[in-house]
């Protein structure tokens, strides 16, 4: 079963002179554990595709399946369940909950899923170790550096053991050294957990950790490249 199957997806937004097509029959698939970099200039439709895959936006045509589940058949509650259990997102601005410590942020999705306490504790402890934040686990978000915040966000994304992680410019708000480290971490954890990742980026460093790179222009995927 594919981790992600996007088939002929179209999407338009209303404009002053009629609908403006943003996605023009996009098809894309990700194997389990596969990492794909999605690149392209601003306005090419990357974010729209990411929003459609994440269930934020609905495509006008085509279909999107995540781990065999067709998003078109899901209502708002179903999409919430998908985000809660199957797809995680890593953001450019980290988006940690400000009232929770690093450990609590990682634990939060598990609480939402009703995971039992002993299992929760074990999983959080393991993730904190994996992202190298054991010594900072009790710190609040405002006490963390950008790199540390992104590590917490990655651990949080992995906590539910998702089939797919959507990463939206995960290094866009970090300096290059920290960005490199975060990419290495993403790759390592992706390998270890067997999680597929679709990484939207402008950064030329991202393709280094991906199995392939796809480029988007004017709402269409142009080519699929293997990493250099």
């Amino acid at each position: 079963m594919m981790a992600l199957q996007v088939s002929s997806v179209t999407k338009s937004y209303p404009g002053p002179d009629g609908p403006v097509p943003v996605l023009k029959g996009v098809s894309l698939s990700l194997e389990p554990g596969e990492r794909v970099a999605l690149m392209g200039p601003s306005g090419s439709g990357k974010s729209t595709l990411l929003n459609c895959v994440g269930g934020i936006d609905r495509p006008d045509g085509g279909s999107i399946e995540i781990a065999g589940e067709d998003l078109g058949g899901l209502d708002e509650e179903g999409l919430c369940r998908l985000r809660r259990q199957t797809v995680s997102t890593v953001f450019q601005f980290f988006h940690l909950l400000p009232t929770l410590s690093a450990r609590e942020n990682i634990e939060f999705p598990l609480l939402l899923n009703g995971v039992a306490e002993s299992e929760r504790a074990a999983r959080v402890a393991a993730l904190v170790d994996e992202v190298g934040l054991a010594h900072r686990a009790s710190a609040m978000p405002h006490e963390l550096s950008g790199g540390e915040m992104q590590r917490v966000a990655i651990a949080r994304a992995l906590a539910i053991e998702p089939r797919l992680i959507l990463a939206d410019e995960p290094t866009g708000n970090l300096d290059s050294t920290t960005g490199e480290a975060i990419l290495d971490l993403l790759a390592a954890l992706g390998e270890r957990h067997g999680t597929a990742m679709l990484v939207v980026t402008h950064s030329p460093q991202v393709p280094r950790i991906c199995h392939r790179t796809v480029e988007m222009r004017d709402g269409q995927l142009l080519a699929t490249e293997k990493p250099a």
Partner: peptide
């Protein structure tokens, strides 16, 4: 922003 994060984590409206 915080509510949006919660929504991203799968919390329903």
């Amino acid at each position: 922003a915080e509510i949006a994060i919660l929504r991203s984590l799968g919390v329903t409206p």
